[in-house]
Amino acid sequence: MTIDEADARHHLCGALREHAEYVADRWVHLQKERAALDAGLTEAQLREEADVLVEQLSSGLHGDLAADRLVTAHAGLRQAVIELSLRRARGGAAPSATALAVLALKEALLEAVQLGTSDAASLYSAALLINRVLDAAGALSFATYVEGREEIIRRQSRQLLEVSTPVVQLWDRVLAVPLVGTLDTSRTQVVMENLLGAIESSEAQVTIIDITGVPTVDTAVAHHLMQTVNAVRLMGADCFISGIRPPIAQTIAQLGIDLSAIVTRATLSDALGAAIALIASPVSRTIPVAAR
């Protein structure tokens, strides 16, 4: 650490110690002033956040960590910055909100230092130091924001998947899953979990997967279908596939996909009829021995 930096650090520590309230107030005020920072946070929340951040900043600066590593290496400070970002991400704030919040903090800090000295050189060093510390905060908050938004998107996608793959009870011991859209890995996961859970709770004997709404069946889709069928069979229920349209049937034949071990029907009602008949004469579900 150079003499200038040590000096600046000293000033900054002093400013935070003596003017902690001021810094927090000022920061909240600056954020409110710039409406772009509105993230559905109340003033009370902003204030609470500010207090925590100021405290952690103070704690960090008093220690030995180098300024540019402070935000990433100091656990408390890092956590405070991450939470600041996640709070805004979850509140649906614009991406710039976190960055602008950090910039406003810089301003508030510099103003606090000015309360303690008006020496140009000192102020300049202090400004440099504040930049060094908070630039890392800006970077971290941005990364966290992005991850936070992506997590929300993932969760919403999953929820959408669940809503769009309902399991319906068509008959006593007969469940049906009408699939709409393509059967990719994530949808297969949702279908399997929902369907198998429903089998367990309704003690179903036959399940019908209707693929009328599935636009194309290629080897990947067929693989996912087979996985679902196998899982259902392991549980002890039967799995029929209905809604195979003529072009789909042709594609399946052309691709050489072997669905001969599965009961298939053109329509859901045909499959339901087969299911009811099957239930009337109980046979066990035996997994065919795999051909070598």
Binding site: D184, T185, T188, T219, A220, H223, H224, Q227
Partner: peptide, 8 residues
């Protein structure tokens, strides 16, 4: 690797 990423 999630199942379904590579069927073979």
């Amino acid at each position: 690797m999630r199942p379904g990423d590579d069927p073979s």
